[in-house]
Design a protein around this nucleic acid. Structure first.
Lengths: 371, 371
DNA sequence: TTGTAAGCGTTATCAG
DNA sequence: CTGATAACGCTTACAA
């Protein structure tokens, strides 16, 4: 099927072009029908006699014809693609079990709806640029508050948008979990076991997350604090440290805290991976978990079941969050009634495994023996 | 900015449309210039006086104008998007650390080149459909041999293509590692430690992987076998079992093998996650690793360092594979010289950690004591 | 049942 | 430096 073509170069020489796509017009001509007929053969076979349909299909496959998805998108004003917007680099996103599982949930539901997925993350440092270039019908923004300038811009552009893990506002629909409640439950569990000396490993607030909107870091911290306060436990700033959400990040954070003389009997980690890292640091420092040190994570990623001992943590339905986000995006109830967006808040629960135990007696003031 | 519009419905009633995009024509009119000028203002500011550029930009942002990426792609015949093709569902892909790390590598290099990433995986069970709908400039196919019908179809369509983890052929460029050599090194290491009773945990061959082309499962098995054969060790079929590439999959596979009466002193797993699952199964069965059972994984994912004991495995440069795949796709040396594709084969190496130890003496024939 | 023709929103060519 | 005008490849009223 001669679909190569000689192109005249400016200089007058003939040069072989890369294979030119077979277009709908080519097929139409070859089949002796109109473009419309070919289009129908693919998109609405019912509107053609079954003979012509098969005839056209035969010709088309023989010529290797494949409708151009871009042209199709332009004409239909629909890309059948949905974007997942993350403020971090994809490199980080893909290697973060939480994000991976969330994306899996999105993918599962998207597939059901026949939608493809595209990841949108800063392009040459600019989220705006990445968003502008993305050919998508809707965006799921994760971890970006409504106050984030990019989110605002997307909303203004009229593109469908669902935010995940961000403050609920009237401006756009959202999916979230009870971060504060979960954190409170984690802290209470440790308080109930008699712990009074805590170390909190916080996740990093997203870059440029804007002022007002509460990030999950804020919410979870608030949860921890409210439980501690209710129990009359102080929490000096020094005892909450921010760690990168990686195993290594958690490991280093705990090491440094230890070297700074902190001697908690319990650590509250805002993410399971951080907790896992901290567990390894503890092991290296010959601190036994849970005998000497209790630990509660957050998220309940798969690995949490397989650490040694298995990690006590706050379970959240990560995969379902992804699915629900897609449903909300598709359901589109807020477009009709602006200023009254739907919010779905999913439940979390404490899962007690092997990393929490009664606080060891008499471990106060150890901190002072240092140096 | 009145960019809502009343649309006449077929029935004659007026209905409010969703917000209509501001187009380049709107901006041109508002700014009192031609469409060309607006286009230049965005894509080739040098060709306009700086005054007009800023003027146009001002108007454009005021109107909330954003060039339509789809229209742009059509006109440019370029989507600036690259597809990662996997034969499995995204649900599995995202939760597989190997794939996640590979994708991260692709993402890193793609970002440098200003390319977006789209995942292509079976849509309603059909890879072909998914490929047809994907608006991408090039495809990186992972784990799909050249003999796979879909790969052949893509090649024929003239789309840029790089295959990863597949047999090297003249038809398309490829990235791979020395799977066979790595597997051989793993087996030799165990043989050197005196092991003679093996269990092999194989990964699943990709569905419809076609007949001839060797998958990584084939290659690694070949590597194991050649080392064992050289040492005069028999490997009955019964001792190689296929397990899903998940922790749970490895766990169950090992349990079942054990229940079937197999009593290996060493297991060779084709993937780290499977190995990790098997380690947990062993622990549940009170089989001590590495005292009673040695284990070697494959891939060297991050978790391998953090298991207890840390996993001995075959390291492969997963992230770099992703980067190289993109480079190869962009470099495009094979387009010029068809039938002579470039292949990059990256190195693997044995990383000895804590899960391998001298074989326990006298553990033959235990198998026979069963039932 | 099939064909004609007008978009879809850009970019690219080529005169002014 | 700027502006018409023709692609780009498809879908989709509307007409036959």
């Amino acid at each position: 099927m001669g679909c190569r073509r000689m192109l005249q170069t400016g200089a007058g020489g003939a040069v072989q072009a890369t294979i030119r796509r077979t277009t709908i017009a080519d097929v139409a001509k070859a089949a002796g029908v109109s473009k419309t007929a070919v289009s129908f053969a693919f998109n609405a076979p019912d509107r053609l006699s079954s003979e012509t349909v098969t005839h056209i299909h035969d010709i088309a496959t023989a010529m290797g014809y494949r409708p151009d998805p871009v042209a199709r998108s332009l004409a239909q004003r629909r890309t059948s693609t949905l974007g997942i917007l993350t403020p971090q680099s994809l490199d980080l996103t893909f290697n973060n079990p939480y994000h991976a599982l969330f994306a899996a949930g999105v993918a599962a539901e998207a597939e059901r709806a026949g939608l493809a997925i595209q990841f949108i993350s800063p392009l040459h440092g600019s989220l705006a640029r990445a968003v502008d270039r993305a050919s998508v019908d809707g965006i799921i923004a994760v971890g970006l508050g409504s106050s984030h300038p990019e989110v605002a811009r997307i909303r203004r552009s009229g593109m469908r948008l669902v935010v995940v893990d961000a403050t609920e506002t009237d401006d756009e629909p959202s999916i979230s979990v009870d971060d504060e409640g979960g954190a409170r439950a984690a802290a209470r569990h440790l308080l109930d076991l008699g712990h009074r000396e805590f170390l909190i490993l916080s996740v990093e607030p997203p870059a440029g997350s804007g002022g007002r909107s509460a990030t999950i870091a804020t919410l979870r911290l608030r949860g921890y604090q409210s439980a501690l306060r209710a129990a009359g436990v102080e929490l000096p700033d020094q005892q909450v440290i921010i760690a990168p959400t990686t195993i290594e990040g958690g490991r280093q954070a705990f090491r440094e805290a230890w070297e700074d003389g902190l001697r908690p009997t319990a650590v509250l980690a805002m993410s399971d991976v951080t907790a896992i890292g901290a567990m390894h640091a503890a092991r290296e420092l010959r601190v036994r978990v849970p005998d000497d040190l209790s630990m509660v994570g957050f998220d309940d990623i798969e690995m949490a079941q397989y650490t040694d001992p298995p990690l006590t943590t706050i379970h959240q339905p990560i995969h379902r969050k992804g699915e629900e986000a897609v449903r909300l995006l598709l359901h589109d109830p807020w477009q009709a009634e602006p200023g009254r967006s739907e919010h779905r808040r999913l439940e979390v629960r404490l899962v007690i495994r092997g990393t929490t135990r009664q606080a060891p007696p008499m471990r106060q003031e150890v901190r002072d023996t240092k140096g």
